[in-house]
Simulated assay, not measured.
Amino acid sequence: MTSPHTIAVLGMGRMGNAIATRLAAKGWDVVGWTRSGRTSGAVRMTGDPQEAVATAGLVLLALFDGPACRQVLEDVHGSLRADTMVLNTSTIAPAEASELARQIGESYVHAPVLGSVPAASAGTLKILAAAATVPTVQDAVFEPLRAYSRGHATGDPAHFRAAFLPTAHIEGIRDGAFISWPLDEYCALFQGRPAPDEPTRSRRIDTIDVHGTVATATMTLSHGSDTFTDIFLLVRVDDGWRIANKAYHRHS
């Protein structure tokens, strides 16, 4: 019999480990698995994902991307109990979430989170949950903002290029002077690796307002001693939502 008190966390990277640790601290029976073989001092681990899900009432995915989610779910699908829920917190495209929902059925819940590792550790993550539905326009508008967050988290400018239109500018006041970076100049600021203090940084989406084919959004970034308010103008183009421009304020 599946125990509703057992949670299998598949993907024990920084976010997955933080979520698993928080759940264990709150008294849940948590078993973790990761493709890398990474261990965790906070929860029991297994090297077999099918074993991890076999007795779980809830399977929580915290994986890198859509293909990783698809592969892992294909591997464990035969071991899932009929009453087991699959909660996917991974950042994936709406089309990928829809395909996983069709494959898994009504037990699949798409649940992207707003927040980073510190929020997971503190239990303050915001969860956007949807099940048995095709993601709406409002869901899709989150995608470039998540790509933007991944750019900061990894230092990989490819994520910014996926988030912004090629014509985008990033604007604000820097050292008392107005700056307006074209996308290429902005991407050149990132060296392809996370900041040394990345584990302590956090980012959250505060507001999104959609008006047909345009939207505005606000994010708060806490980067070390600096806090930034980012304001985005987004447009819906043929291949989905993209950021047309960003303006920011650095709080002193």
Rank of each mutant, 00 (worst) to 15 (best):
V210L: 02
E143S: 14
R174H: 09
H211I: 07
P194H: 05
P194D: 04
R193L: 09
D226A: 15
D156H: 12
A158S: 13
D156L: 12
P182C: 03
I179Y: 00
L183V: 02
W241Y: 04
F178G: 03
A188N: 02
S180W: 00
F232E: 06
V141K: 03
S180I: 02
F178E: 12
I208S: 01
F160S: 08
L189D: 00
M219F: 00
D206E: 14
D209Y: 00
A195D: 13
P166Q: 01
H159C: 11
R242C: 05
G192Y: 09
T216R: 05
T213Q: 08
L189P: 00
D184A: 14
G151D: 08
D206H: 07
P194L: 06
A163K: 06
P166V: 07
H152P: 04
V141F: 04
D175F: 09
L145W: 03
T218Y: 00
T218H: 06
T216V: 05
L189M: 05
T200Y: 12
E185L: 09
D230K: 07
T227A: 10
G240N: 06
T213D: 14
T220K: 04
D197L: 13
A162M: 13
D226V: 15
D197E: 14
T227Q: 14
R204E: 08
P144C: 08
T167F: 00
H211P: 02
G212R: 06
F232G: 05
T200L: 15
F228P: 06
H152K: 07
T200K: 13
T227D: 10
T154M: 09
D206C: 08
L234I: 03
Y186P: 02
R161I: 09
T213V: 09
R161L: 11
G212F: 02
R204F: 02
D209I: 08
G240P: 04
T218I: 12
Y148W: 15
R242V: 06
V237C: 10
W241D: 02
I173C: 06
S202W: 02
S225P: 13
E198Q: 15
C187N: 00
S202R: 02
D184M: 03
I208G: 00
H159M: 10
R146I: 14
Y148T: 11
A195T: 07
Q191Y: 04
A153C: 09
E171C: 13
L233H: 10
R161Q: 14
T220L: 09
V237W: 02
R203F: 14
D206S: 08
Q191K: 11
A177L: 07
A177D: 05
F232M: 06
F190T: 04
T220V: 11
G212H: 07
L183H: 00
L183S: 01
L165Y: 02
A153N: 10
Y148L: 15
I170T: 05
D238C: 05
T200P: 05
L234W: 01
M219N: 03
Q191D: 12
T229R: 10
E198K: 09
R161H: 10
T167S: 14
F164D: 03
V235E: 12
T218V: 15
R161M: 11
L189Y: 00
P182S: 02
Y148I: 08
A163T: 06
R204D: 01
R150L: 15
T154E: 08
W181L: 10
D156C: 11
Y148R: 15
R204Y: 02
H223T: 12
G240T: 05
H159W: 15
H223A: 14
L189Q: 03
